[in-house]
Design a binder for these strands. Structure first.
Lengths: 180, 180
DNA sequence: CAAGAAAGTTAGTGACCAATCACTACCTGA
DNA sequence: TCAGGTAGTGATTGGTCACTAACTTTCTTG
């Protein structure tokens, strides 16, 4: 397998592992085991652990964006919000991508605390791009777009906290407007 | 100093340290140093590291709830939403409590993955209580309450990602209704 | 087929970390 | 005054982790 293919494979496994354990809570050993290579070989493919995390973080944002773009493809304007909402729910159904998103959020803060401004800058670029994509798909309406993002963040929290689907707090979500 | 006073002190320091580094990224040594006691003594005050984190997490939720209750005290019904919003912004101004909140969210998921259901149960109880408190203060209106929480979660994300105050994405936040 | 590059491994290092143990210093009440 | 409880420490330990060095294997190509 070529180094480039291996790298792609590492990123996929890393996303899943980092989502589960966070940056500090995930060992490079566990990633290597998941990929099926020796742990030192990871450091041939990436300069250090942080670079693996960054690659996984970017892939996570990219996947979310792609999902939205595909979900809105060929959908009449009036039904795009609903389509995006459904697509997002599908995307985070297995909690992996969602948790990686949250891990990235805390990692940006931690990176900044330890003097690394670059990481945050790169992630913010990805997020702004994600917002712009959503906004474009929703016809450029910032109010609807922002409300969509806010609802998504609340859903993230409830999923992370593992509220049961039948919990009454989920019932409150129906009050959030699902269309513009 | 009595053990109980020490424990309170440990929780305060732990909140700050865990907010900065997360659960795995914070050593008991650094907490002990912050408190001004030896590291082994922490394990006299708490059974293990996880118990320290749990205590800090609960204190974090409690502080948020208390802030809301105090902010709404004596405020006419029509102005409570605004008062809560301002109080929350003040509360998270230094990012410490906010980051602890997010660390708790990812920690619940991680705890569950490693078979600890109890941690999540306790945290959810705190969160449900927090929501109920907000809902009560907002006159029992679930739509407004849920929208308030959703806005808070989006603000959390933007603060964690360290978006500059003048970033255009903050401008979008003004579209979120700040009153019922 | 020779030779070099690319893919991949084994062995190892220094640093760190949660938790334990055995100990000291101080206070309090009979 | 002395016995027992409480606050607190130094030393240590078994284990983990990111990362490196040096080596082997496999593929490609002139």
């Amino acid at each position: 397998m070529s180094a480039e293919e291996r790298r792609t494979c590492v990123v996929a496994v890393a996303m899943s592992e980092f989502a589960r354990g966070g940056y500090e809570g995930t060992s490079t050993e566990s990633i290597a085991k998941g990929v099926g290579v020796s742990q030192p070989y990871l450091f041939r493919l990436f300069p250090n652990k942080r670079a693996i995390f960054l690659a996984a973080a970017l892939r996570c944002i990219e996947m979310t964006r792609d999902t939205f773009v595909q979900a809105a493809d060929g959908v009449p304007p009036g039904e795009v919000y609903e389509a995006l909402a459904v697509a997002y729910m599908d995307l985070i159904a297995d909690h992996e991508l969602l948790m990686m998103q949250m891990q990235v959020q805390v990692a940006v803060f931690q990176a900044k605390q330890s003097g690394d401004e670059e990481f945050g800058k790169i992630i913010r670029r990805g997020w702004t791009d994600l917002y712009d994509t959503v906004c474009l798909l929703l016809g450029g309406d910032h109010e609807t777009s922002t409300r969509f993002m806010a609802s998504g963040m609340l859903i993230n929290t409830m999923v992370a906290l593992d509220y049961a689907p039948e919990d009454r707090l989920w019932g409150c979500m129906k009050f959030l407007p699902c269309g513009p």
